[in-house]
Simulated scan of single mutants.
Amino acid sequence: MTASLTLVIVAAVLFGTGITVMLERSLTRVLIGFLLVGNGVNLFMFTMAGAPGLAPILGEGVDPDAISDPLPQAFVLTAIVINLGITAFMLALIYRSWWLAQLGERGDLIVDEDEMAEDAEETADLYRSSEEDDRAVQAVLEASDEDGGRG
């Protein structure tokens, strides 16, 4: 077996295992399968890049056929970054799912009784202050009416 055939076999095994694991219902297994598929695809792209060559800088006296293609390397780096972002998103989904499962029947609502009491006091203060404002405005209007608007 040559090195490239070995890489192709390893990539195929990673891809197949990842697809198999992704078909499970558990979000953790879906994440693991996604990581395996991502690594398998990266290995396929790396293998398809061809034989390694010189740096992709064309200078004088350099044969263009001896230069390696930089595009597959850029694709692999981009795929790694995208894979990292999707992995972070899926980890957040897994954590949120676990958190909601731990809450049980209560669901997403967590009641804080002290906070509710403070909110009720603030609301009562707002009603009191608005009533005082209404009385003050009414008193000014009545005084204005008594003066005949000459105020």
Rank of each mutant, 00 (worst) to 15 (best):
Q102T: 05
L100K: 13
A11L: 04
E113K: 09
T6L: 15
E146Q: 07
W99H: 12
L141R: 05
D114A: 11
F46P: 01
S97R: 12
M116Q: 12
A3G: 05
G148A: 04
R150I: 15
A12C: 10
T78H: 04
L31K: 01
V21F: 06
G16P: 15
S68E: 04
V111S: 05
L27Q: 04
E118G: 08
R96I: 14
D133I: 14
G61D: 07
I110R: 14
G149W: 04
V10R: 00
R106N: 08
Q138A: 12
E121S: 08
A88Y: 08
R150M: 15
G85C: 07
L27M: 04
G61Q: 04
R128A: 12
T28D: 14
A66R: 12
F15E: 02
D112S: 09
P52A: 05
V41I: 11
I19R: 06
E131M: 11
D63M: 01
G59N: 05
A117L: 08
G85Q: 02
D63N: 10
Q102R: 15
T87G: 04
M90C: 03
I9G: 05
L100A: 05
P52I: 01
L14N: 06
A139F: 06
I9D: 13
M116H: 09
D133K: 09
Q73G: 14
T78R: 00
G151W: 13
E146R: 11
E24H: 15
E118N: 11
T2C: 11
P72D: 00
A101E: 06
L23F: 13
M48H: 10
L126P: 06
D112K: 04
E115Y: 08
T2F: 13
L100I: 06
V111W: 03
L84Q: 07
P70A: 02
V13K: 00
V111C: 05
G148H: 01
E142D: 15
F44V: 13
M1I: 00
M22P: 15
V13D: 01
G148F: 01
V111P: 00
E131N: 09
V41H: 00
I32C: 01
L58R: 13
N83A: 10
L103I: 02
E115N: 10
G59R: 06
D108E: 14
D119S: 15
I80C: 07
I110C: 05
G85H: 03
Y127C: 12
D112I: 03
E60M: 10
A55V: 08
Q73N: 13
M22G: 08
D125I: 06
F46L: 12
R135A: 15
G151T: 15
Q138P: 15
E118Y: 08
L35S: 08
E142I: 03
S26C: 02
E132H: 07
G40R: 00
A101S: 05
A11W: 01
F75L: 11
E132I: 11
T47E: 02
M116G: 05
E146F: 08
Y95S: 13
T17M: 14
A136Q: 09
M48N: 09
L54G: 03
L77S: 08
R150A: 15
E121Y: 05
D69H: 04
Q73K: 11
I19K: 03
A92D: 01
I67L: 13
V140H: 14
L58T: 02
E115H: 10
G148S: 03
V10H: 00
L91N: 04
S129M: 11
R150K: 14
